[in-house]
């Protein structure tokens, strides 16, 4: 991974993890000297078996939990007077993570509300976010009245209402059925094209990662580390035709092989 891009701010990496190590109180080494650069505009997938620390890496990028060692830099982000980066992040959890007592509208309003914005002043922004995920008709519904896929869309709307530059997604579609998942995959690609997001996407699905990503980082477990990198140089927009193309199949095989080797590597060290 080169770091030649530095003169032009727009080409600087969005975030750079250098030698990030995370160990938990129970002695588990979740991440061991992880070095990773997220380039502007890319769709980066962290692919790996459970326990490889991919979610931990994502949470460290989000600022939820500090690394035990190593550093996280935000080269392209202005810093405030205290030296803290003014990050612009959206986060989508594995579950929709909606407030069940609040309507869809109020759930999407939340990030702005926490910044002190009144309901009236952000009505248009919230409704636009809902329109992007196709849920304007459900603004007054409660989460329990929605299907799993719709809840995930609300979660997406909430993440995009602040217009983040970087979207972090932690296996967001793992609990959904395949049809819904395919549809949301397409929606994510379209939203990324429209809004120019940089995305870091955590998944354990080879097929999902190849379909969505411009770059896949395969991780190995025990301890969590980068095992291999795969570029996916397939131009966008991608659609259902890509899903059945020989290119797709070949890339899936390549990613799948890498994942198998990553798991064998982890297994050897345990044994």
């Amino acid at each position: 991974m080169s770091s030649t891009a530095s003169a032009d701010p727009s080409r600087r990496p969005v975030v750079r993890l250098e030698g990030v190590t995370k160990s938990f109180a129970n002695g588990t080494l979740a991440l061991d000297r992880l070095t990773l650069e997220v380039r502007p505009g890319e769709f980066l997938s962290l692919l790996g078996p459970s326990g490889c620390g991919k979610s931990t890496a994502l949470r460290i990028i989000a600022g939820l939990g500090q690394p035990t060692a190593g550093r996280v830099d935000w080269p392209a982000t202005p810093h405030d007077a205290g030296g803290a980066p003014e990050r612009s992040i959206g986060f989508v959890f594995q579950e929709p993570t909606l407030m069940p007592w609040a309507t869809v509208f109020n759930n999407v309003w939340l990030p702005l509300r926490l910044k002190g914005r009144s309901k009236a002043s952000v009505r248009d922004a919230v409704m636009e976010a809902l329109e992007r995920v196709g849920l304007t008709a459900f603004a007054d519904a409660y989460p329990r009245e929605l299907s799993g896929g719709m809840k995930m869309r609300v979660s997406l709307a909430r993440a995009l209402v602040t217009r983040p530059k970087l979207l972090l997604m932690d296996e967001p579609f793992a609990a959904l059925d395949e049809i819904t998942r395919f549809k949301l995959n397409n929606d994510i690609l379209q939203l990324q094209a429209e809004l120019g997001w940089t995305v870091v996407f955590v998944t354990h699905s080879v097929f999902e990662s190849v379909y969505l990503s411009s770059r896949i980082v395969v991780m190995a477990a025990r301890p969590g580390r980068v095992f291999e990198e795969i570029e996916v140089p397939v131009p966008r927009p991608r659609d259902e035709a890509f899903r059945t193309s020989p290119d797709y199949v070949a890339l899936c095989r390549q990613a799948s092989d890498a994942l198998t080797r990553a798991m064998q590597a982890a297994g050897r060290e345990v044994a």
Binding site: R59, A62, G63, L64, I89, F91, F93, Q94, E95, T97, M99, L110, P111, L114, K115, T162
Partner: peptide, 10 residues
């Protein structure tokens, strides 16, 4: 997760 979300949005 909701607590994390609140933390994330400051």
């Amino acid at each position: 997760n909701l607590l994390n979300l609140f933390e994330l949005y400051g």
